Structures are given as structure tokens and as C-alpha cells.
Amino acid sequence: MSLSVKKSNQGGLVYSTEHGRMCPTCQQAMSQCQCKMATALPRGDGIVRITRETKGRNGKAVTVVAGVPIEAMELAQLAKELKALCGTGGTVKDGAIEIQGDHRELIAKKLQDRWKVKLAGG
């Protein structure tokens, strides 16, 4: 079995095919992080922004929900709820939820009860 490893500019391990993403501070897998740097809430202005993207996706629309101030496990659960609400697939990438299709208004209605929501972009 071949082990692929990526290193950051500072020289620390950031990804391993065996363990996945690595914590930049304690050098452990994110699931075994000792310093809890991995579970820190994303910094932002407290506004959830919902955009529609088509760039780099062969013209297919994707709804991106960014700036949700919750931890990674809760974000994955929210993504699951939004996918079920919209009846489509999706994923969580880099702290943002991506839902297939243009569902900005539907997602905005769902999230307005918990956070301040803005429809950003075109």
C-alpha cells in the first residue's frame, strides 16, 4: 500500500491518505486532535451567506452555504438536513455546505430562524 502525504508551506503534515486531514498544531489526525484546534468555530461576521455557483462545474448550479458558526460535526448534520429538505445531494467542503442545484430561497427560509442570512452573489 502506497502512502501519499502532503505538507504545508510551514513544513507540517496536513494530509495523509491513511488518516485524512491532519491538525496543523498537534500533528494528529483531525479525529484524534489533542489541541482542539480542529474543532474551533469558524471566524466570521456572524452572517450566513448563501450563494449560487456554476464556475468550474460545467454549467451546473450549486448552492453554497458559508459562514455557519457551528462545529464540524454539527455542520455535517445540518448538511444532511438541507440535502433532505432540497431532495438533492451535497457535501461539506472547507467549512461550507454545497447543495446540488439552485435552492437558495428554500435554504434561506430554513436557516433564518437560527441565524442572520444573506443571499449573496447573482
Rank of each mutant, 00 (worst) to 15 (best):
A29I: 02
K36C: 08
C26L: 08
Q112T: 10
T88C: 02
E98P: 00
G56I: 10
R52Q: 14
G67L: 02
G12F: 14
I50T: 02
K60T: 13
I99R: 00
D102I: 03
C35D: 13
G56D: 07
P24S: 10
Q32G: 06
Q100K: 15
Q112A: 15
G46M: 06
A72M: 11
D102R: 01
E74V: 06
S2E: 12
G46I: 04
C23S: 05
K6A: 12
N9A: 11
G90L: 01
P24W: 05
G59N: 11
C86Y: 06
R114W: 04
S16L: 13
R43Q: 14
Q32K: 14
M37D: 12
P42F: 03
C35A: 14
Q112F: 01
M73G: 07
L82P: 01
H103K: 06
G46T: 06
W115V: 03
K6Y: 12
Q100L: 09
T54F: 12
I70R: 06
Q100E: 15
K7P: 00
Q112C: 03
M1R: 14
I47F: 05
H19C: 03
E98Y: 09
S4N: 13
G87T: 05
T54A: 13
L13G: 02
E105L: 10
L106R: 15
V68M: 05
I50M: 06
Q34I: 08
